[in-house]
Simulated scan of single mutants.
Amino acid sequence: MKSGIDGHIRRGHPIIFGLLILFGIVELAISAWLTSRFSKYHNESSGSEESRVNYTLFCSIWTVVLGAVYLVLFFYAATGSALTSILSHIVFFSLTWIFWTAAAAAITEMLGGGLNCGTQKEFVYCGQLNALEAFAWMEWIFTTFALIFVIVRGIKAARRGDGYGGSLVV
């Protein structure tokens, strides 16, 4: 017997992964553009700025590629696959959450919480860095909500006797 939550998962899974991928592509574009500018003009304020932007580029690629894989697998192997299991989702979202926490915190610390582009003189690409920070925190928020939901779903599956190796949907 299917529960009402299964319908929500069937609708919500593509939505959350779609949002993660969409905002990941935006973050990827911004961080790749900044990386190319730093490589070409060497106008970063410090080596730390370049490293943090490069790390954000890695996080974006991670999220877009693996998010797309999970989205495709959800549609074609929704049940019975180890890659679509609750445990697999917990591992993916836990790692992704750690990556985005580090990226968002690093960018925020570098910018001192955000830049006023009208008054600051240190950073060349002020608007892009502000956008990089904002989208990093959005990725973190989506990942946090998804991780909490998958953990709750895993706890319910374990109590039901299915374990964490079970599928998100029954």
Rank of each mutant, 00 (worst) to 15 (best):
K156I: 14
T84C: 04
L73V: 13
E122D: 04
A68T: 15
N54H: 03
L71H: 11
L87C: 07
S51H: 00
K156E: 00
A158Q: 13
T96Q: 08
I30C: 02
S81W: 13
F135S: 11
E122H: 10
Y76H: 10
A102L: 10
Y55Q: 11
R11S: 07
R11V: 01
L20I: 02
L115T: 03
A157L: 07
F145T: 15
A102Y: 08
G7V: 14
I21S: 06
E122V: 07
R160A: 15
F123K: 10
S3D: 14
G165M: 08
G165A: 12
A102M: 09
L71I: 06
G18C: 01
F74W: 03
L129E: 03
S45P: 00
L83N: 15
G114Y: 01
S85H: 15
T119N: 08
T84M: 01
P14A: 05
I90F: 02
T119K: 11
C126N: 06
L19N: 06
T96P: 03
G12K: 10
D162L: 13
F135R: 02
R52Y: 13
I5L: 01
W137L: 13
G127E: 12
L87M: 11
I141D: 05
L132M: 07
A146P: 04
N130D: 15
T35F: 12
A134Q: 09
W33K: 02
G80V: 04
S3Q: 08
Y76M: 05
D162S: 14
T119V: 09
V124W: 00
W62Q: 12
S3K: 08
A82I: 15
R160V: 04
A158C: 12
L73Q: 08
S88F: 06
A106M: 11
I155R: 10
L57R: 14
I86L: 08
I25H: 01
K156T: 11
I98L: 11
N130W: 09
I98Y: 01
I25Q: 01
S60P: 01
L95T: 05
S36M: 13
L22A: 13
L66D: 02
F92M: 15
Y41A: 07
V169C: 12
G165S: 13
W137Q: 12
E133H: 11
V91D: 00
P14H: 09
I61E: 08
G114W: 01
Y70Q: 05
E50M: 12
W62Y: 15
S88P: 10
A68F: 12
I86G: 03
I15D: 00
G24L: 02
W140A: 03
L132N: 07
L147G: 03
L95G: 10
L57N: 09
G166W: 00
H89I: 00
F75H: 12
G163C: 07
K2L: 13
S81V: 04
L129T: 01
N130F: 06
V124Q: 04
A105P: 04
I16P: 02
G4A: 09
G161K: 11
I151S: 02
A105W: 00
R160E: 15
D162C: 10
L73E: 02
S31M: 05
T84Y: 04
C59Y: 03
L71D: 10
A105T: 15
V72M: 14
F23H: 08
F99R: 12
T84E: 03
A103C: 09
M1P: 08
G113A: 03
W137G: 10
S3C: 06
N43A: 07
K40I: 15
T35M: 11
